[in-house]
């Protein structure tokens, strides 16, 4: 049922990767993505892929969970592949009317596809091994230095926390509205696309109004609990770097070094 939906796509566990500080994981993921764009040849990708599979092995997240994330973006990867296949000039391998496949095109297409796949696996591994709440906490800490130049880091993190908290509540609310409309004879399942889209309006409007009401209630409850912005606020679980984070940082540095070296292969 709607009550059982999971938040984000967190895979509960207690592996070395799970225990890393969220900040470490966010930075490492960003670095990994940057490194992927530095790769120049297939040797580099081989190293990057091997590194990724080692991390997956350590995280104990079942591989099928990781590939589930790929199915959602399969279309994008296929599109990139096809575009690259046909659009690159060079030594022609195959030709038909205005379409031509070149040697460079094939190589570039595979190159881009592998890059995208690794990129998506890398970022989904982060969300799979980090609780949403830790992610928002980590993000708040990471953005903190930017608050000096006016970036509301605390507010951004709190907004994300509340959004995550209220996904299930709003889902329940939607469920209730749909049932109430169906009980009065509304039909959401037949008719063409336009008709069905129109049928959604009577759901969206009450949902919109309800979410404002909920926001008002919540604001009042937060004020009653002395919420007055991020200044002077402490946290129950202060996130701290541990030895694992240092090791992870070192490994990332070594990995980046190897990739840079692989460029000259």
């Amino acid at each position: 049922m709607i009550r059982d939906i999971t938040l984000g796509q967190y895979y509960p566990g207690n592996s070395v990767i799970h225990r890393l500080d969220a900040r470490t994981k966010i930075i490492a993921t960003l670095l990994y993505i940057v490194v992927l764009f530095m790769v120049k040849n297939f040797w580099g990708f081989l190293i990057a892929a091997a590194f990724m599979f080692a991390i997956i092995e350590f995280s104990r997240v079942p591989v099928r969970f990781i590939f589930r994330g790929l199915t959602a973006v399969f279309l994008i990867i296929a599109f990139t592949f096809v575009i690259n296949l046909f659009m690159v000039d060079g030594r022609v391998l195959w030709e038909w009317k205005f379409l031509s496949i070149t040697y460079e095109g094939v190589s570039r297409a595979f190159f881009m596809a592998v890059r995208l796949v690794l990129l998506i696996i890398g970022s989904s591994l982060m969300t799979l091994t980090t609780k949403p709440i830790e992610l928002t906490d980590g993000l708040e800490k990471l953005l903190k230095p930017f608050s000096k130049i006016g970036l509301p880091s605390h507010e951004i993190a709190l907004m994300m926390t509340i959004a995550l908290r209220f996904i299930p509540t709003l889902m329940e609310e939607t469920d209730k509205i749909i049932k109430a409309q169906q009980a009065r004879g509304a039909d959401f399942e037949s008719g063409n696309l336009l008709y069905r889209a129109k049928a959604l309006i009577p759901i969206l409007i009450p949902l919109f109004i309800n979410s404002f009401r909920i926001a008002q209630d919540l604001a009042l409850a937060m004020e009653a609990r002395c919420y007055h912005g991020g200044s002077g606020r402490t946290r129950m679980n202060e996130i701290k770097f541990h030895r694992g984070d240092v090791i992870a940082a070192l490994l990332m540095a070594v990995f980046t070094g190897i990739i840079v070296l692989s460029r000259s292969l």
Binding site: I133, A221, R225, C226, Y227, T234, M236, E238
Partner: peptide
């Protein structure tokens, strides 16, 4: 009960008030 809980996890929500008061972790 739904509209006054701020955080997804029970203990994080209970901690919300004391955190606002700036109490030691």
């Amino acid at each position: 009960p739904d509209n006054q809980i701020v955080s997804s996890i029970v203990e994080d929500d209970v901690a919300f008030g004391p955190e606002n008061l700036g109490i030691e972790p």
